[in-house]
Amino acid sequence: MARKPVWGTIFRRLLGALPSLAGVVVVTFILTRALPGDPAAFFAGAAATPEAVEEVRKQLGLDKNLAQQFLRYLSELAHGDLGQSLTTGQPVSTELVNRLPASLELTLFGLLLAAVVAIPLGVLAATRRDSWIDHVSRLITTAGVSLPVFFTGLLLIYIFYFKLGWAPSPMGRLDPYASAPATVTGFFIIDSLLARDLGLLTASLKQLLLPAITMAIFVMAPLARMTRAAMLTALSSDYTRTTRAMGLSRYTVVYRYALRNALLPVVTTLGMVFSFMLGANVLVEKVFSWPGIGAYAIEALVASDYAPVQGFVLTMAILYVLLNLVIDVLYSIIDPRMAAQ
C-alpha cells in the first residue's frame, strides 16, 4: 500500500532518456552533414571566388574531418551553444528559445481544442451508441483524418479569411501594427491576460484560432475513436456491471467509474497525438507564417543552414522526452497499479 513518490518515477525516466538523447545528438550531427549542398559556397555567395569559399569553409570549421567537427560540436553543446544561424547571424539557442513559445502555444492550444471536442464526442458516442451523435461523430472524425494537414489549413484560410473575412490574415501571431505583450511565459494568450490587455488577448486569439483548429482537426479522429472504444470497454466491464447491480446512479456509473477507467488509454492517445502535432507543426507554421521553431527549421533546411536544423531536432527530442514523462506521471496519478510498480 506504500506508494512510491512521483519524483522517483520522474528521476528514473529522465535517466532512462539519456541514451536516446545521446543517440539523437549523434544522428542529427551525421544527418545534417549528409544533407545536399555546400553551406560554404552558399554563404560565400554566387559571385565568390574559390579562395573566398575556402575562407568561409575555414571559418565554419568545415575544413576539419568529421570526428573533429563532432568533438567541437559536443563541447559547444555542453556549453549550451548550438552554434549560429548563417542566415540570420543569431545564436541558434536564442532563436529557439524565442520561437519555442510560439510553437508550444499553437500546439497546446490545438491539443486543448481537440481534447475538448473529441473526448466528450467519444463519450457521447459510446453512451449513445448508434444514435445520431455516434454517426455524426464518426463522420466528422473520418473527414478530419482523411485531409492532409496543410490542405485543411489552406481550406480554412480560403473559407474564413478569403471568402468570409472572419479571420485575420494568416500572417503570424499578431497583426503587424499590434505589439506583443511583455514576455512572461512567451504565450501571448497568457501574457496578455497577465497584462490585463483584453484587446491584445482577442487579437492574439484571433490569429491563433485558425492554425490551432487546423491542428485540432488533424488529431480529433484518433482521440474521439479511442475515447469511444475505451468507454465501450469500460461500460461493458465486470466492474461496471457491479456498479449497476449495486444500484449506483447512472452518473456515478458513467462518469465516476467508466470514464476514469477509460481515461488511461485516452491519455496514451493524447501523448501520441501530441507528438503527431509536433511534427505537423512544421507544415502548419509554414502555411500560417507562424514564427515558431518549425518554420525556422524549414527555412534553415532550405538554406543548408546546419546549426538551426540540429538545434531544432534536438529541441524536438527533448520535447518528446518531456512529453513521455508527463504521460507517465499522469498515468501513475490515474492508475494506482502503475504507481505501485
Binding site: 444500484g247 446512479s249 492508475d335 497499479r337
Partner: peptide
C-alpha cells in the same frame, strides 16, 4: 423503481471478484 431495488433490496455478488471491483478506485 429498479434503482431503488438494486443494491438496497436485492444485491448481487459475482464470480471473479477481482474483475468485479473497479481496479483504480
Amino acid at each position: 423503481e429498479m434503482r431503488a431495488i438494486r443494491g438496497r433490496k436485492i444485491a448481487m455478488i459475482f464470480q471473479n471478484p477481482r474483475a468485479a471491483l473497479n481496479p483504480i478506485r
